[in-house]
């Protein structure tokens, strides 16, 4: 690219647009200030009418997307829940996990390490910064202690999420993330395991990303 290409493209666009440049800048500023939301779906509220909690709605949606969900009453119970999950599903290491005290509970299950995932790692354990009930999605953010490769390289991905971090929709999450003042390099919205329909449009699970997504939802102990 040359600097003149940028100028040329922007000028070619501007020539066809209506209104003075200053007015259009102001219109964009207003859009960024107001950030109108589109229509929200009634499905979460509808599901909660029968007494289901946000965590219940999230769990049901996550299961529909092909994930498995186990519940723990509190963070204190997470290590025991992980141990049972490990035993019941016959998982094998090596494990790569986020640098997080709850994720580190797996250190005595199998050989484990923190940092970036490598090709040999069989299981990745992460903590989600949030979850979305509408779609059953997990939200994971990259950081020094939470590398993105943990989410994608191992065959099995185990994700911990606090009930308190579950939101109805993405629109509920954006203001919270904006308030942090800076963006992580990568935000992953993960909904179920890796899948493809590329051969004869036949749904198959586990092509490049994890073949299995196991979610541990933990409460606040009350």
């Amino acid at each position: 690219m040359t600097a003149s290409e940028r100028t040329g493209i922007l000028a070619a666009i501007a020539r066809t647009r209506h209104g003075a440049a200053a007015d259009r800048e102001a219109a964009v500023d207003r859009r960024f200030a107001n950030r109108p939301s589109g229509p929200r779906l009634a499905l979460v509220a509808d599901a909660m009418k029968d007494g289901a909690s946000l965590a219940d709605v999230f769990a049901a949606a996550a299961i529909r997307s092909g994930a498995s969900v186990v519940r723990a009453a509190s963070a204190a119970e997470v290590p025991e829940t992980l141990r049972a999950l490990w035993r019941d599903t016959g998982l094998e290491g090596p494990i790569v996990h986020a640098d997080d005290p709850l994720c580190a509970a797996c250190d005595d299950f199998a050989p484990s390490h923190t940092g970036a995932a490598v090709g040999e790692d069989r299981v990745g354990i992460s903590r989600a910064i949030a979850a979305i009930a509408e779609t059953g999605s997990l939200i994971l953010a990259s950081s020094a202690g939470t590398p993105t490769t943990v989410n994608f390289l191992p065959e099995t991905h185990v994700v911990l999420v606090a009930e308190a971090d579950i939101r109805e929709s993405l629109e509920d999450l954006w203001p919270e993330l904006r308030a942090k003042g800076e963006w992580p390099r990568t935000l992953n919205q993960i909904t179920g395991p890796s899948r493809t329909g590329d051969i004869e449009l036949t749904l198959q699970i586990g092509v490049h990303g994890p073949r299995a997504l196991l979610i541990v939802v933990y409460g606040d102990g009350r």
């Binding site: 949606a61 779609t135 059953g136 963006w183 990568t186 992953n188 919205q189 909904t191 890796s194």
Partner: peptide
């Protein structure tokens, strides 16, 4: 409803 992976980078 949502594809498996939506990534904002």
């Amino acid at each position: 409803q949502s594809s498996s992976y939506t990534t904002l980078s």
